[in-house]
């Protein structure tokens, strides 16, 4: 089959969250752009996150606590809650939609095979991490991630991203975003343990869970409950509401809401 048709079929066969739950058999052989072997981490576990959007109030406590816990530089975020104002075109009814974003720790992470120096890798427990001592800062992974989950940390000049707070998990603590979530919307756990809360919730809501951008074939492991399908990809006709406000010297002094 020619590659263009194959890609078309790939696009057509949009993956559901159910399919994403089937773990890829550990990839041994790595052709060009295939997943290299995983290393480190507990092979008995597979961490994942479930976000119950019905419980998210958009308070950004996760954004702030993550920022403090991981000392991210100003303006860069490992997690953030996107907020949308949704207006019904006929009735004019307004609603707010909150969408917490973070690294999806994909089963097929596109950021890992592109790394030219094996600085970014996936641990056996599924967590995708960056070895900042090895990273050369080529930013290839930043471009390869469809979720904008990565950035170049201006302080270390290397790639930076959410690690599910692996350092806290190892100390039997919850990630900062989970710990601080006011509504208890974020649930993290080992999906290989059938008794874990996340496994039970996945079992209970299997048909309703959604992942972001399933058509990218990344098999994300952050599952959304109470998700509107139109927001799994970049919504159509979405409008920005915030504009930068600059002073006379072009220096940014704040934000302004469009039409307010």
């Amino acid at each position: 089959m020619d590659p263009i048709r194959r890609s078309l079929l790939g696009q057509l066969a949009k993956l559901t969250a159910g399919a994403a739950l089937v773990p890829l058999s550990s990839v041994a052989s790595a052709g060009i752009n295939d997943q290299p072997p995983r290393r480190g981490g507990d092979p008995e576990k597979r961490y994942g996150m479930l976000i119950d959007l019905r419980r998210c109030i958009g308070c950004q406590a996760c954004t702030v606590s993550c920022h403090i816990e991981n000392a991210a530089p100003l303006g860069n975020f490992r997690t953030v809650v996107s907020q949308f104002e949704v207006e019904h075109e006929e009735t004019g009814e307004l609603a707010t939609f909150m969408l917490p974003r973070l690294c999806n720790h994909c089963e097929n992470p596109p950021c890992v095979p592109v790394c030219p120096v094996q600085a970014t890798f996936q641990r056996q427990d599924g967590i995708v991490v960056v070895d900042s001592d090895r990273c050369v800062g080529c930013a290839y992974c930043v471009n390869a991630c469809p979720y904008d989950a990565r950035f170049i940390n201006p302080r270390t000049q290397t790639a930076d991203k959410c690690t599910f707070c692996a350092h806290r998990l190892e100390a039997n603590l919850l990630p900062a975003c989970v710990e601080s979530c006011v509504g208890g919307a974020r649930i993290i756990g080992d999906m290989r343990d059938p008794q874990s809360e996340i496994s039970q919730l996945i079992e209970q809501h299997r048909g309703e869970l959604m992942v972001l951008k399933p058509e990218k074939n990344t098999l994300p492991q952050v599952f959304y409950l109470g998700m509107d399908e139109r927001f799994t990809t970049r919504p159509d006709g979405i409008k920005p509401a915030i504009w930068d406000v600059a002073n006379q010297n072009g220096k940014e002094i704040g934000y302004e809401f469009d039409g307010h």
């Binding site: 860069n76 975020f77 949704v86 019904h88 006709g237 509401a241 915030i242 809401f257």
Partner: peptide
């Protein structure tokens, strides 16, 4: 049949 306005978003630089 609904319109979405994005209220809050971080700034993404180029890589």
């Amino acid at each position: 049949n609904s319109m979405a306005i994005e209220m809050l978003v971080p700034r993404y630089g180029i890589a």
